[in-house]
Design a protein around this nucleic acid. Structure first.
Length: 306
DNA sequence: AAGACGAAAGTGGTTGA
DNA sequence: TCAACAACTTTCGTCTT
């Protein structure tokens, strides 16, 4: 895959829009998702060669949660302040320093390992930098609150990543997280719920629309079908078909219907695999969609035989 | 033979007493 | 803490193309 695309291969338009949050390039004219999940825009500028890179880099190391001490470690002071204290204060001082040392080394050791793991998983999933940062922040808070105790470090990392994805509306399913991190799906879900509850992180229920673009391009569906699917989805939301249902199932069903209507048939199995749900779920949603929205499928029948 | 459909039983999570 | 419950999955048999 070439690195820089200037024209939309579908309609030839040049109005390509970059959605940094989701890591997608979208053609503004026809809505085609040209690239997704393959970019990591850590900076707002790009380096085309080394010289430019040197020129454009204008800060030192950023303060970042992906470094275990945020790049800004502090210690309880060393000897210089010390001679002003009397013996009592001095003892207290030593005790504090000892504790600070113990606690911080324990936490930092953990963080070091965890953030390495986090980076690995994030890059495996091609997650944008912003999400990686967010999840590192969540994980750090979790460690400081002692939430990792009794749980595996990896599962908390996965949970934090999932939470960060949700907050940034970068849709990744639990399955994907589970596969990338090697943690059981249930476990990821469990720690995700636990961590967000304990940290009081509010997460909006994920919106099925967020999944459409990704599923559609994974299925090689054209932009027409994709916008049709979004349309269907919106109607479905109005008809209150979406609450309480799994968002991926609804997104998948909408896509399936849209594909049928546009003569771009995909089998239920294909759609189901991509979306990570079963055919049965697609069927159920699909039935509801047809019924509630009075959509009629009059496609197929290769030629008009009337 | 493959895909679509539906019924029945099982699973894990949420909720309300 | 437990039971009821909804959503989803798995499995399997039947029908259609």
């Amino acid at each position: 895959m070439s690195t820089y695309i200037k024209k939309c291969p579908e309609c030839g338009g040049i109005n390509l829009v970059l959605n940094k949050e989701k890591g997608e390039i979208i053609c503004k004219d026809c809505g085609l998702v040209i690239e997704e999940k393959m970019i990591d825009f850590g900076q707002e500028w790009q380096e085309f060669d080394h010289e430019q890179a040197e020129k454009r880099r204008r800060t030192g190391a950023p303060m970042t949660y992906t470094k275990y001490d945020r790049g800004l470690g502090t210690d309880v002071g060393q000897t210089s302040d010390l001679y002003q204290l009397k013996s009592k204060g001095r003892n207290k001082f030593f005790r504090l320093r000892k504790w600070q040392y113990r606690i911080s080394t324990a936490i930092e050791r953990n963080l070091k390992l965890a953030l390495a793991e986090l980076k690995r998983v994030a890059s495996y999933l091609k997650l944008p930098k912003s999400v990686e940062e967010e999840s590192a922040r969540i994980y750090t808070m979790a460690v400081q609150r002692g939430l990792v105790r009794g749980r595996s470090m990896e599962s908390v990392v996965a949970g934090a990543l999932y939470a960060a994805c949700r907050r940034h509306e970068v849709p990744r399913t639990l399955e994907e997280l589970s596969e990338a991190s090697g943690i059981d799906k249930k476990e990821v879900g469990r720690t995700y719920r636990f961590v967000t509850r304990e940290l009081g992180i509010r997460i909006l229920p994920s919106n099925p629309v967020d999944y459409i673009a990704r599923f559609a391009s994974a299925l090689n569906l054209n932009a027409n079908t994709q916008s049709k699917a979004v349309e269907i989805l919106e109607q479905a939301q109005k008809a209150e078909l979406t609450s309480g249902r799994g968002p991926t199932g609804i997104a998948a069903a909408s896509l399936y219907v849209a594909a049928l209507m546009n003569n771009e048939k995909r089998t239920q199995r294909e759609v189901a695999d991509i979306a990570g749900v079963t055919e049965v779920t697609i069927r159920n949603r699909y039935k509801e969609l047809l019924k509630e929205l009075n959509i009629e499928i009059k496609v197929k029948r290769k030629d008009t035989k009337e």
